[in-house]
């Protein structure tokens, strides 16, 4: 592994498949830039052994990441982070936010919260998440 250390947490009791936990966490690290393009990932076998999980599990996580274009494999050398089209990822994120907002609007209407109530609530959330007080 290169200079960057990534943190991976496996929760065997969460009920979420372990390969998916690895997939999600690595993907997050790639999107937020902790893992940069062309950076090597731990080998499938070593990652499995370090996390004390099955090799098949890590292989599956890597396969999924590769299928979705987040990593690429060079035979004999291992897996590397693929360069990401940031604007595309951002667009994906924007869509996600939009769908969450629709949900907020729906919930707000169901308990008759006004536009200003919601904005006020978001101000608190924003502040608690480390943003400026609005």
């Amino acid at each position: 592994m290169g200079g960057v250390t990534i943190q991976l947490f496996i929760d065997t009791r969460s009920g979420q498949p372990i390969y998916l936990q690895i997939y999600t966490q690595l993907k997050e690290n790639i999107i937020n830039g902790t893992l940069k393009a062309d950076e090597p990932l731990p080998s499938i076998r070593n990652l499995a052994k370090d996390l004390r999980i099955s090799v098949i599990t890590t292989k599956r996580a890597y396969d999924e990441l590769e299928k979705d274009g987040f990593i690429y494999t060079i035979t004999g050398k291992g897996c590397f982070v693929a360069g990401q089209d940031i604007s595309l990822l951002q667009e994906e994120t924007l869509k996600k936010i939009e769908s969450h907002m629709l949900e907020i609007a729906r919930l707000a209407r169901s308990c008759e919260l006004s536009y200003t109530d919601i904005i006020e609530m978001y101000g608190d959330v924003h502040y608690n998440y480390g943003g400026k007080r609005i």
């Binding site: 065997t12 498949p17 390969y19 004390r52 099955s54 090799v55 098949i56 599990t57």
Partner: peptide, 25 residues
Amino acid sequence: KICDYIAFMHEGKLLLCDEKDLLLE
């Protein structure tokens, strides 16, 4: 925790053998 494959044996027969993760899923 550690196995890639799990094989169940019962009365001299193999009940099943598969990748552990797949079994659990």
